[in-house]
Simulated scan of single mutants.
Amino acid sequence: MLASLLFPGLALAQGVQVDAMTTEHAQFTPTQSYVAKLEAAEHAKLMTRISGYLMKQHFSDGAWVNEGDVLFEIDPVPYQQALAIAEANLEKAKAALARVELSHKRVKALQDNGGATQSNLDDSTAELTVSLANVAVAEAAANKARDDLSYTKIRAPYDGRLGRSNFSRGDMITPASGPITDIVKIHPITATFSVSHDEYQQQKAKHQGPVSFLLEETGQQGGLKFVDNKINPASGTIKVAAKFDNEDLALFPNQVVRVSLNNASSFDGVWIPQASVQQALTEQFVYVVNDGKAERRAIEVLERQGTNVFVSNGIEAGERVITAGLLRVRPDVPVVVSEE
């Protein structure tokens, strides 16, 4: 060691002590990562269509419910009474219509035989028309009363997770009271993000077939849901949405995640430590051991992951790349690899 310090030329002649690694063939598929915000596939604010006292809440806040489940019940008694009255009025109108129809038949028969005037027939026809209209009005009132009674049960419009209830049992609620609660459909769930117009065109050219995405937090694979039909004039970006199954319901709306675009093209190359890469003015390079000497190689770094880089050009599998002791290494300088 002392001799190498006092006589550096002698050390160079004997060979610079270095560490090296033998590269192995690898493949790398580039991915483009985006910061995305999760959104529910559907989101509804559940409101009442009628007025009344809230009598029952069948599910707790945050519960998972299925389409058609009864979530809340409003006091049905006033609406049951209204339906009974409407149905009675309908029967009354039908009975009146039956009487008028029978009378109209008699008047028409008399008029045919000369026993009634045209005026009598006209009056009977008008009375029949009014009776038919009364039945139609009564039927509409009965249908409305029947609908109002059905609205006393507030049901889930689809499978989803409930939010917090804004009312308690016994509260008087009306259509003007606002949402009773909300429900989100998160199976599947949507991740939305923005890309520049230029990048969108580049990715579109690369992916002629179906596009797939990776949710980095969970490893879930997803597909393209939609690309917006306009560019944001303020940012020059296009909104893109990917759809993920979220079968375990672990993802929530408004959660921020990272989404990667799976690339259809793979590259051959080698992984080497980033510490072995040197930077010149116009290129990156490494030193490779060739016949006991250091050979400078210009390289193309395609990806960095942790402390390693993926090199797609400049190094072949099986070559030895110098990883340490680079301070005194120069092109064509003899080197001695430590493990040797």
Rank of each mutant, 00 (worst) to 15 (best):
A109V: 04
E87A: 13
E87G: 06
K105W: 10
D75A: 11
V107R: 01
A95C: 01
P76D: 12
K108D: 07
Q81A: 15
A95V: 04
I74Y: 01
E87P: 00
V77M: 09
L97C: 05
A93G: 03
R106H: 05
E87H: 13
V100F: 09
A109W: 08
E101C: 02
R99F: 14
L102V: 06
V70D: 05
K92E: 13
L90M: 14
V107P: 00
K94D: 00
A95T: 09
E91A: 11
K92A: 14
V70W: 05
E73M: 07
E67D: 03
A96K: 04
D75H: 11
L102E: 13
V77P: 00
A93W: 02
S103C: 06
R106I: 02
V107W: 07
R106L: 03
P78W: 14
K94M: 04
L83T: 07
I74R: 02
P78S: 13
L110G: 09
A86Y: 08
H104P: 00
D75K: 09
L102Q: 13
A86D: 05
A95S: 12
E101G: 02
A86N: 07
I74L: 06
K105S: 14
K94W: 02
L97F: 13
P76C: 07
V107N: 01
A109Y: 07
S103P: 01
L110R: 10
E101D: 09
K94R: 14
S103L: 12
K108G: 02
A109P: 00
H104M: 11
E73I: 06
P78H: 14
V77T: 08
Q80W: 03
L102N: 09
L71F: 10
K105V: 10
V70G: 01
D69H: 12
Q80M: 11
A63S: 14
F72C: 03
E91G: 12
A86L: 08
K108R: 15
L110W: 14
L90D: 00
E67C: 00
W64L: 10
V100A: 02
E67F: 04
D112Q: 15
I85L: 15
G68V: 08
D112K: 15
K108F: 14
L90Y: 02
I85V: 14
L110H: 06
A98P: 04
W64Q: 12
W64M: 12
L97H: 13
D112W: 15
L83W: 15
D112S: 15
V65H: 03
E91P: 00
P78L: 14
E67R: 08
A82K: 12
V107L: 05
K92Q: 14
A63H: 08
A84T: 13
N89R: 10
N89G: 07
A63Y: 11
A96D: 06
R106Q: 05
V65C: 07
K105H: 10
N89M: 06
Q81F: 15
K105D: 08
V107K: 02
D112M: 14
R99N: 11
R106N: 02
V77C: 05
V65G: 03
V70C: 06
V77H: 08
L110T: 07
A84R: 11
E67L: 00
L102D: 11
W64C: 01
V70K: 04
E67I: 09
E73A: 08
R99G: 05
L71E: 01
